[in-house]
Design a protein around this nucleic acid. Structure first.
Lengths: 254, 254
DNA sequence: GACCCGAGGTGTACGACGTACACCTTCACT
DNA sequence: AGTGAAGGTGTACGTCGTACACCTCGGGTC
């Protein structure tokens, strides 16, 4: 955790012999080791993982590291750079299974791997979507994914359009706009639920069916997020497979 | 525009007879009319439209309305409520074409209508995605969209999954992760562009093809955002059509 | 006319936040 | 011993959302 900042360091009061006289003795790290970009980034990631991205500030991060806020700016140019570094690290966590040559299978694996990595860090979706420019790791991932389509024999034309069509689904998230009313107090939740059928009959019908199929299965109102994601992904990939098989090209489109 | 705050109102200095003595004479509104939730919301929308959502603060909005910041809180409980009200208004702008009974066509129309409404307000995508709970207008839209599938004869099971599969595409945006490096300075843009082919051969290949097809057609690196969106939408809808025609159900899925 | 009451606008203030800028340590290398 | 840079500190500024106490009206009741 490292929330210690134990000896109440004021920068001068630290005893030199105890702290610096035994650099090889790390059983009681009264003197923290020097900062680095990596240490800042992993502390930031850890903090965002456990406390949520909205409570990650330069000040709280500095405190977590037992350091004054401005110290971070020696390793990170500003907060945007910090966020870029964080997603860079998370995207770098995506593991690439060996390819089989069957493009649909390979793409599926790769995207599910991305999903697994990004889901380990709940904040990554929001941060990724808020960035305007791409980081190197993002470009690497995108390039490898594109390569899988091309290796499968899809035309660059079709591949291009498919990458657009995947949209943010290529990162493994799907937005889940049905899992709304997530954490609101039970009061308003119940009144809303009660008022739903008359106001929104179609939504009510779906909710009823979903609840019947998987009663109280935890996540959301009876929806298995993972299988919903895979359903949507396969829908797109199968559609692309058909276009590929029938020789689609953008010139011949409607 | 209403950036005036002309007579430098201090609340007391306003002349009663000039301002209040002629309520029917609105040619020189030296006394601003009273605030209301609607006036606050439409000023906020106007401000976000022209200056971007990131520069919309309670303070700037109050200034735009010629009012002290805290005055807004008489009409809006807090900034989140303001944002909710703004998207509520924008989503309410979605026009519903008359339905034809052909579900694929109707859904397509409805989603493109949503796209048109949300694109009039560039900030709406980010705000919509940042909200956790749904507003009434959002529920209305979702319900009507769901109703189109059900009216077309799709099972509630399939409809449910399709709504999930549409994800945020049902609101008419697609994230466009290929239009990256949007406004960065030409310096780094060029170096990045130069370094791209060796680092990311597949992306380079696609970029080359796209540039050849539509050389310098403005928007992004040769991508027509609108047709990309429609491509992806049709891909999903056609896929759903196939599932529907072949009697898909979640029980029979792999 | 006197009263009051509540809706709506004001003023001040607090505790976040990101970060500019000048400073001080420390340490490797000359 | 001397120097210069790398890394940590302290202070300060401007911005944000908003709590809280106030003031000012216009309209309803007695």
């Amino acid at each position: 955790m490292y929330t210690c900042q134990g000896p109440h360091h004021i920068g001068l009061e630290v005893q030199p012999e105890d702290a610096l006289g035994s650099p090889s003795n790390e059983d009681s790290p009264v003197r923290r080791e020097t900062l680095s970009r990596d240490r800042v980034l992993s502390a930031a990631i850890e903090c965002a993982d456990s406390n949520g991205i909205e409570s990650l500030s330069m000040r709280s991060l500095a405190q977590e590291l037992g350091v004054v806020p401005m110290a971070l700016y020696k390793h990170v140019t500003n907060k945007d750079d910090l966020l870029d570094g964080m997603i860079e690290a998370v995207v770098g966590e995506i593991v690439s299974d060996p390819t089989t040559g069957e493009w649909k299978h390979d793409v599926r694996q790769r995207i599910l791997a991305a999903r697994a990595a990004l889901r380990r860090h709940a904040w990554s979706r929001a941060v990724l979507e808020s960035r305007s420019a791409m980081t190197p790791a993002m470009l690497d991932y995108l390039d490898s994914l594109t390569g899988l389509f091309l290796a499968g024999g899809l035309s660059v034309d079709l591949t291009h359009h498919v990458m657009h069509a995947l949209g943010n689904r290529m990162w493994g998230f799907s937005q889940d706009l049905f899992a709304a009313t997530p954490r609101s107090d039970t009061q308003s939740f119940n009144t809303q639920r009660a008022a739903l059928p008359r106001q929104h009959p179609h939504l009510a019908e779906i909710a009823r069916a979903a609840l019947r199929d998987e009663p109280g299965s935890g996540a959301g109102p009876g929806c298995d997020e993972q299988s919903e994601f895979e359903f949507a992904l396969d829908l797109v990939l199968d559609g692309v497979g058909i276009l590929h098989a029938t020789g689609w090209s953008s010139a011949s489109a409607t």
